[in-house]
Design a protein around this nucleic acid. Structure first.
Lengths: 268, 268
DNA sequence: CTTGACCCTCACGTCGCGTGAGGCTGGAGG
DNA sequence: CCTCCAGCCTCACGCGACGTGAGGGTCAAG
């Protein structure tokens, strides 16, 4: 009889294995007076009687249903307690929590998608919004290159909240800016002139509100890439031949006016 | 310009309304170093710059996704952090929690049902298990009378875990006991005899393992009700005429042998 | 007599703040 | 000038249900 009880009660360890609760939990329930053992040995060992076990078992049952210890205490100590009512209230709470978690899961799905694809639009929607010059592979390529930067994370966080309407607004803003840049170049606006600098600020604003905050230094790097990267250059030169180069020079001049040497500017 | 920022930063209250977070949360994030304001006034007022607001906004976004502050810190501070991985892990956790909550909700449903109906069986199942003498209105009547007692709660808790098989076992045990009682009466077993007392103990065991723990005092009350209540009496007298009365006398005699006066015994 | 498993009582840590207490600060009005 | 009041500050405890040691007795077996 290694574990067969001294007839007058079980110790915490024995109860613990019987009911699959931790010893600490039994201690806790004793501390708060939820379930005290009827007996103690002279050495202070807790001894739980059969009646104690009844109560403990009931506690375990209601605890598994997610009720708080206070509510359990009420249910056990007041025989006239409205048990079904308490259970229904609990069920309602659980339903609410499930709902919240589902919404949360949906949000996580969106965010994961945004991080991985960069754009929560179908290819058709992309074509309709960004026009014929758009290549649906671009977001994937961008993620390939910049996916492990903080900027990509920030961009993804914003993308997760953007639908077709928001992207249409961005597309419109970019197109409008491109036209203004082309018009300015046509009109002979010189790098460093107030008009040119104003356009550079506008570019920074549009970019920042579309993608992620852009420092002047970063803008310089971006201007260089506009000219050097074939895809970007094709975009701008497709609007007006020489526009990529002109834009780079305009950005450089503006940076210089703000005390930045464009030749040593760094992205970070 | 009542709230238009002193150009160099926003105070906690302003940020709080902008981002819909509590002032205390901002304090907390400052305390743990998750988001400290870049500036302080000479009086110690926190001033959050535009860059600070960026960070705060990202924190809010990830917090709404249910990430812990430590994980958010990792995501924000390490640009190479595996954000989609962290999000997917979070999604898995959320899925698990939803699952657990659903099981919990199902358990609550069962328990509510058990409390209200007393028996989680269809009428057909009840007829098949308890035989032709069974009246499907009995559980509802029992609940009507005893629904606000602790015993009913204990009985309901057990019922919630019982299916047709368990009820069949109980029905068999009760039928077997009834047969044994009838045989004993037929054989002329006298109240107070060892055989009779043994049967009383067996009745107490069967009842306790079927419904709820039964003290000897409660058993006496039950014996009286067996004789006085027409439904119970009809059950026992249907097995053998006079069995209800005989059983009551047998229980009384056993109680007396245990030092209980059956005429003053109380239920509680 | 020792070993090792079991028990005891403190008492702090968890997680993300809520909620005061007690006391400055800063701008508006008298 | 003073006062008022909203808003800010720093502690510091509280929550819920225990987990996790620390430090030390107890008990049956070898």
């Amino acid at each position: 009889m290694p574990d067969a009880a001294d007839a007058d009660g079980l110790t915490v360890g024995q109860v613990s294995t019987h009911l699959s609760v931790t010893v600490r939990a039994l201690h806790h329930w004793d501390e708060i007076g939820l379930a005290r053992p009827s007996l103690r040995t002279t050495a202070g060992y807790r001894l739980y009687t059969a009646a104690d076990l009844e109560r403990l078992h009931r506690i375990v049952v209601y605890r598994e249903l997610g009720l708080g210890l206070d509510r359990i205490r009420a249910v056990l100590d007041d025989p006239a307690a409205d048990v079904p009512g308490a259970l229904r209230a609990q069920r309602a709470q659980v339903a609410e929590r499930i709902d919240r978690l589902r919404q949360l899961s949906a949000g996580l799905d969106r965010m994961i998608d945004a991080h991985e694809r960069g754009l929560l639009l179908t290819v058709e929607q992309q074509a309709a919004i960004f026009g014929p010059g758009w290549n649906p592979d671009w977001p994937a390529q961008a993620r390939q290159r910049y996916g492990d930067t903080a900027q990509w994370s920030q961009y993804a966080e914003r993308s997760a909240t953007r639908g077709p309407q928001e992207w249409q607004a961005i597309s419109d803003a970019v197109a409008s800016l491109d036209r203004a840049l082309a018009d300015a170049m046509d009109a002979g606006v010189a790098p460093g002139s107030p008009e040119a600098n104003h356009l550079v600020e506008r570019h920074r604003d549009v970019f920042a509100s579309s993608y992620f905050p852009l420092s002047r230094q970063m803008q310089v790097c971006l201007g260089r890439r506009y000219e050097a990267d074939p895809a970007f250059a094709a975009h701008y030169d497709g609007i007006r031949p020489g526009l990529a180069r002109w834009l780079r020079r305009v950005i450089d001049a503006s940076a210089r006016a703000h005390g930045i040497d464009p030749d040593t500017a760094t992205w970070a």
